[in-house]
Simulated assay, not measured.
Amino acid sequence: MLRTAFSRTKGAAIVGCLALGLLASCKQKGKEFTVKGELKGMPITIRKAYLVTSGLDGKPILILDSAIIKEGKFQLQGPKDEDLFRVMLGDPNGGPWMGVVNDAKEVTLSMDANKGGDYTVKGSPASDRFRTVLESLQEIMFQIHALKSDSTDPAGPVKADVITRQLYDTLAGVIRTDPSPVVASFALNFYAIGADHDAAEQSEINTSSYSVDTLNALAQGLQQRFPKDAIVSGQMAAVGKASGIPHVGSIAPELTLPDTAGKTFTLSSLRGKFVLVDFWASWCPPCRAENPNVVKAYNQFKNKNFAIVGVSLDQEKGPWLKAIHDDHLDWTQISDLQFWQSKAVDAYQFTGIPYNVLLDPQGHILAIGLRGDDLEAKLREVLP
């Protein structure tokens, strides 16, 4: 699954999941579609336009063509094979951009910086639908962010969750009905971010109503509609990987790592208990700040069939042991001292710490990412 910011010029929060990394240039063969651009009100620093691949097909991001902007106009050329591209303005790695699908031989894109960076499309039905979908997602994301940021509205988180479900419903509708495999694949790629709790939380689109089963059903339906499309096939592979990310309801992956004495410890040895698997490191300030909350929860519930296993991403044993002592972490601690190359990262596929999962006595994941008061509240809810 590909994840990164997908915004235009409005400073949006993360609203999509197309990778944008270090760009490489590419000399094309057989340029067979043309993009014409018309710009108004752009800063004088925006002097060039670039045609850039989106990465939706899982391949490296490439600059396919570039052109000098003269009197607000430019022209770019790209390949025939249908795909999603970005027309980047000024900087191929960021800044204002417009999405284009090459379902037509010639596409005209118009952007007016004086109107908030919105753009219009002529000549490409798929590009215009992509623009509509993107703007709809951005608007929903703005609403979610506003509700979650409003400390004066105690019902904000509940309202945000309702709108988050609306976002996933919007994506599902596009996946099921859009006639372009490219636009539908973009929606599926975005939908799949929900399979990764950590990424969805960072994007502010995490919801307990998200269903991996629905993701798989949408992917299968898309493949049935476009059985021979290469981009859809690539998305099927990405969804398969995303579906394997541990989620609420799934069995927690096994962990077998050395404890502080160097003895092998296996997570499944705690079956029959509620277990918090807590991923942290001595070098991680947010983890150290969260440790008092974990200590409080442990002391409060340790006699109620509850255990904690700390899993560290430390590289050196000394700092790890010192942090355990200083923070009063009086429960089992394990680590292979391999930093982000730890087997734990590969097994649980998280992208940031602190991170945790709460397991029931059968090893099913009950909750993910419990921080602060949420940890105590969840334990009160589930413990007998």
Rank of each mutant, 00 (worst) to 15 (best):
R129V: 08
K304I: 02
P246H: 02
I44T: 15
I175S: 03
T170Q: 15
K159C: 00
V121Y: 06
Y298S: 03
D314F: 10
D213Q: 14
I193N: 08
I205Y: 03
L329W: 10
D198L: 05
A67V: 02
V311F: 10
L218W: 03
L22D: 15
Q138V: 11
A237M: 11
D198S: 13
E376V: 15
K29C: 04
T164F: 00
Q349L: 09
D314W: 10
N356Y: 07
A24V: 04
N293L: 06
D81P: 01
S269A: 14
E106C: 05
D360Y: 01
Y119G: 04
G262H: 08
L337Y: 06
I205N: 04
D169W: 05
D196Y: 15
Q338Y: 00
P157A: 10
P246K: 08
V107K: 05
K10I: 13
N216R: 11
A219Y: 04
T152W: 00
D198R: 07
A367C: 06
A230V: 14
Q202L: 13
F85D: 08
E82F: 00
G95S: 02
L222A: 02
P246F: 07
V182F: 03
S342F: 08
T4A: 15
Q338F: 01
V357E: 05
S124I: 03
L76H: 09
Y355E: 14
L18D: 12
A200I: 02
K27A: 13
N356C: 10
D103T: 05
K241Q: 13
R129F: 06
L215H: 06
N303I: 01
T4L: 11
F74I: 02
A347Q: 08
Y355G: 02
I251W: 01
G11I: 11
L20I: 11
L22K: 15
L270V: 07
G95I: 03
I251D: 12
L20R: 14
S342G: 06
Q224T: 15
E139M: 12
F350Y: 11
Q166G: 11
P154W: 10
Q341A: 10
A307I: 02
K105M: 09
Q235T: 01
A12P: 00
P319S: 05
P179T: 12
V15T: 14
I46F: 07
P154D: 10
M141A: 15
